[in-house]
Each structure stands twice: as C-alpha cells, then as structure tokens.
Simulated assay, not measured.
Amino acid sequence: MPVDFESYYPTNLPDEGTNGREILEFLAANPETGYRPSELTAELGIPRGSVGTTLSRLHERGLVRHKGEYWAINPEAYDARTASLVGLAAVAEQFEGDYYDENPDWDADLPDIDGAGGDEQ
C-alpha cells in the first residue's frame, strides 16, 4: 500500500489488535511491575504459548526487558512518541461508542471562532 512519504513515520510498535500490542499496552500501564508470562496470560486472556513467543519478539525490538521469569516495559525504548501512540489508542478505546464516536460530523455546526471561515465584516 503506498503512503505519503513526507508524513510517514515508521514505528517499532506491534500493530493494533495484536497480542504484542496488547501486552505492550498492559506493561506500559504498569511500568514499575514485572509479570510472569502466566500472569500475563491470566490478565489478558492470551494463550500461554503466544505470550512467551510475543515477549521474545518484543524483547528483540527492545520494547520489553526481563529479569529471570519476570517481564516489564523497557522505559528507555518506550519514548514519548511511542507512549503517545499507545495512549491515544487507549483513549480511543475508552470512548469508543460515545456520542462523538457515533456522530463523526458532530463538529459540522460549530461556529468559526478564528475568523478563517470568510464571515468577515
């Protein structure tokens, strides 16, 4: 799929809706806590075999770290841009189905307060 080259910024993040993204978002929400794969399975409902493989892939990308059997977000790799992408996704999920989500043209009748609308006197 072609992209606008100037506005395209590749990301190291797993795609939305994947096990990797779900694990990463969970660990990012709990940055000081380490979890065993079995605990992530219980918390997220992802099969145990998938959790282990996904954690290894996230580790290869430098997004998570581990000590022994415990895994946590890697704060050095989890920069502000990455945090904001995940944060925006979490906010969008939180408000999914609200009035503004259900009515994409909610702003169509708002007044033009910056004067750029051509209603000059």
Rank of each mutant, 00 (worst) to 15 (best):
P2A: 15
V3A: 12
D4I: 13
D4M: 11
F5I: 09
E6W: 12
Y8T: 04
Y8I: 01
Y8N: 08
T11V: 02
N12T: 09
N12A: 13
L13W: 05
L13D: 01
P14M: 05
D15A: 15
E16P: 15
G17E: 12
E22R: 15
L24I: 01
L27D: 03
A28H: 05
A28V: 03
A29S: 05
A29D: 03
N30F: 08
N30P: 05
T33N: 07
Y35D: 00
E39I: 01
E39G: 02
L40K: 00
L40T: 00
L44T: 03
G49Y: 11
S50P: 06
S50E: 12
L55Y: 04
R57A: 01
H59I: 03
E60T: 03
G62T: 08
G62Y: 11
G62E: 12
L63M: 10
V64W: 00
V64M: 02
R65M: 08
R65C: 03
G68E: 10
E69H: 11
E69D: 14
I73D: 00
P75H: 06
E76G: 06
A77M: 10
A80S: 14
R81H: 10
S84K: 14
V86E: 07
G87M: 11
L88V: 08
L88D: 12
A90K: 15
V91L: 15
E93Q: 14
E93W: 08
Q94R: 15
G97A: 11
G97K: 10
D98M: 05
Y99L: 11
D101M: 09
D101I: 04
E102A: 15
E102P: 02
N103A: 08
N103C: 07
P104R: 07
P104E: 03
D105P: 06
D105V: 05
D107P: 02
A108V: 11
A108Y: 12
L110Y: 14
P111A: 04
P111S: 07
D114S: 08
D114N: 13
G118S: 13
E120P: 07
E120W: 13
Q121P: 09
